[in-house]
Design a binder for these strands. Sequence first.
DNA 1: GTCTATATAGTGATAGAC
DNA 2: GTCTATCACTATATAGAC
Lengths: 193, 193
Amino acid sequence: MARTTGSHSDITGPKVRDAALRLFAQNGYAAVSMRAIATEVGVQAGALYNYTPDKQTLLFNLLHDHMEELLEAQRDDITTSPLDRLRDFVDFHIRFHADRPDEVFISYMELRNLTAENFNVVETLRRSYEDRLETILQHGAATGDFVIADTKIATLAVIAMLTGVNTWFRSGGRLSLDQVIAQYWDMVRKAVL
Amino acid sequence: MARTTGSHSDITGPKVRDAALRLFAQNGYAAVSMRAIATEVGVQAGALYNYTPDKQTLLFNLLHDHMEELLEAQRDDITTSPLDRLRDFVDFHIRFHADRPDEVFISYMELRNLTAENFNVVETLRRSYEDRLETILQHGAATGDFVIADTKIATLAVIAMLTGVNTWFRSGGRLSLDQVIAQYWDMVRKAVL
DNA sequence: GTCTATATAGTGATAGAC
DNA sequence: GTCTATCACTATATAGAC
């Protein structure tokens, strides 16, 4: 219970994580040195190794936890209509991703800097998220609510379209997030009809 | 006219370019050393500097030339209907990008590794490509052929969706490129109707 | 828990021989 | 045009003092 005087692990730990996230997103994993992260945190490089065994684990944890949070946050009410479920998915996806631009960015850009083993873990999580959308589309296609030639292609097309919002959307811009969501929902709805 | 005996610049030059393209796409610009490129070409690192002043120029040329080729190849017959022009754009975009997976990949992943000046050049070219699609959508919206709330958003949404094909399409897979194009065209067509 | 110092290896680019 | 050799840095990670 008693905490060692001068221990800052519960403060420094998150700071290391935040600094790594910001710097990886800004400059890319390979271009960011442990010294740069340490400087951002306000410690010397050696001190970082109290919080991560190595740089690779730092990256893996950021991507892994992002995917876990995504899967944890996404809800699908299977008692509602396919159209309502799809609308909820579109709304959730855009909102969740718009809230975490750095996490989303490194999740796409830094996949190839994961070790093969770490990549497989993250990739499995990503696929299970895709599967949730495909399940909705398959259900709607089966009931006749949707007209979709190939649900796998439609899944990938919709996710690519929605995730693209992150490349240009900035809060405080010409359109509010609600307006953006409304317009994407309009396009997605028509595309699967 | 006469060529120096033993000169291989017309062979080695393209080989340097191809090796850089492949390695940048596979491992990322920052993670690829000039020595690695030289090994791939079959020369020593110092020899590369007969073909590029530095590593940055190597990257810039790849991205710049890719965008120039894209703009050069894209055709828009303004005498046809908005729907036909849009269909041609979708067909062209998917086909052109599917043919050049490495160029497309580094054009998205390595933008941030360009110097500010080089980035602006490439970014300007990219925007002018986007503008060509937006022109088509604006025209169709004006004639009533399309129903689009915001042509800028629709432009970005369609390009994100189409470019997403490159993340999963592999020639020889479940679907032919023609089948893929047909399905994307179906979704795009319905989305703007 | 953080520091300094260091081991070990890699980097981009250049000089000058051939 | 390509080679070898090298300069001046920077990298990740660790050891041991405090």
